[in-house]
Amino acid sequence: MADDNLSDEQLQQLLKDAEQRLRSKSKKQNKPSEISALSHSIPRIASDTKIDSYIKSTQHGPQIDVSHLVSEHERKLANSFRVVEDPITVKKRGDEEKKATAGADWYNLPRTNLTPELKRDLQLLRMRDVLDPKRHYKKESGKPQVPEFSQVGTIIEGPTEYFSARLTNKDRKRTLVEEVLAGEVTTGRFKAKYNEIQAAKTSGKKAHYKKLMAMRKGGRVSKT
């Protein structure tokens, strides 16, 4: 019987033998078989998913089915671990994560990292109308404000701009302020401007008085 590879003929022979045996058997004892008796009972209409009623009759009278007392959701909660986190820290963390960048609409621009260099640069940008007398900008108003989200980048010129829009290596500096100061060394424009203003400002004040006093004392014009 454990033979796995039975040929067709063997199987047919087995079936034929079985048929003969069963025929002789059924002649001998003519009784209804168990299966035929079972197959004579008619199945009933039944649903795959039955709706259970809440009330179950027990020997102590009608009782509520215990399975209904706790809802499915609550049972699941009761049967598993629940990790509780401090809601305040959770909220704080969420807020921080939210505030770290300006959001996807702004390509996740990071929050400003205000270094002293950047602070100077921003101040310089506010006073950019002073740098070049030929260039005019819209007037800035209000208190100087540091932007909430910002990033510092470097413009890299294209190969076609070699002669037209390029800074030479010597002119390149780390920050805007350094570039402007380097320019000042060569031109001296700010110093000249300062002196000009100073001369106008001090014309009738302390220096004028000192000069006057010196003239009164020595009776002559001061050395300078």
Partner: peptide, 13 residues
């Protein structure tokens, strides 16, 4: 067909 009846082997074939 009942498996114990004589017709079963034929049908099984």
């Amino acid at each position: 067909i009942s498996p114990l009846s004589a017709e079963f082997p034929m049908a099984l074939g």
